[in-house]
Design a protein around this nucleic acid. Structure first.
Ligand code: FES
Ligand code: FES
Lengths: 136, 136
DNA sequence: TTAAACTGATACTAAACTGGTATCAGAAGG
DNA sequence: CCTTCTGATACCAGTTTAGTATCAGTTTAA
């Protein structure tokens, strides 16, 4: 079970980097080089961050990207949802259709409980908190 | 992010079923039919449970499978580890090699913290607990 | 005014994983 | 000896993951 995929990972690191220089446009190339991430892969990731309004961009030779929201307000669960979709339990059995006694299903209940714990943990970590290395 | 794959799911349900009839050998066919799981898929899953000593089997016409350990002692994290491998964070960046300042990496630290929370939760749920629907 | 350094938008790829199916062999029991 | 079971594999299609490539358009500064 992998908690974080590469794209979420790279995205978070990129946001951390941007949060440290909130007033300048930094090129994706510079970030990918500096952090050892594959450039074209990061390009695609960055475009998603832009389309989700976490980052803004400027085209042209002195262009680049810049963080658009407060680092406190960007939780890593937001980033994960963009790249990995929602935290979800195993789909209900009986292939297509949901089974009847969902309300009573104990496995389902436990999974939902754990699921919400996981969500809360990832919601508690912001980009700022990562930068601080402390509660944020 | 999916917490439970189908094989873990089916394995857990199978163990629950076996735990309810701890003294008889039940055929895989009977279980797959009864629970709406694909037979051949479940066969493969059951073989893994056997090779990991959670279940024992008897060949031949009145054969089948039987639970081998106490339902209290089988935690769902054990089952998940068999089918999904360990709960792990995103691999360290800089492709193959681990990066230098691992000790200082805040993202890594947070992920490890959350990882251990998840592990503990899944370690706290046993087959017996699922059957009871209460603390066990 | 044009070359260089950027982003926008997509298309492509190989490898791994997921969920499922199929086969053939051999054991046990009546 | 026939049926019901397991053991052991091999196969398969669809999706996901991680990464690469291409071409077009924008901006700036020499
Ligand atoms: S699996 Fe559908 S409710 Fe439990
Ligand atoms: S990514 Fe390797 S230590 Fe943070």
């Amino acid at each position: 079970m992998k908690l974080l995929t590469k794209d979420s990972d790279y995205a978070i690191r990129t946001l951390m980097h941007l949060a440290l220089h909130p007033h300048e446009f930094i090129s994706t190339k510079q970030i990918s080089d500096g952090q050892g991430m594959p450039y074209q892969f990061l390009r695609r990731i960055v475009q998603k961050l832009i389309s989700h309004n976490l980052v803004e961009s400027k085209e042209g030779i002195r262009g680049g990207i810049k963080i658009k929201r407060e680092p406190e307000d960007i939780k890593i669960i937001d980033v994960m949802q963009i790249f990995q979709g929602p935290v979800q339990l195993s789909a209900c059995m009986f292939r297509n259709k949901l089974c009847e006694n969902r309300a009573n299903c104990v496995l389902r209940r436990e999974l939902q409980r754990i699921e919400s714990i996981v969500r809360n943990e990832f919601r508690d970590v912001s980009i700022q908190k990562l930068i601080n290395g402390i509660k944020g």
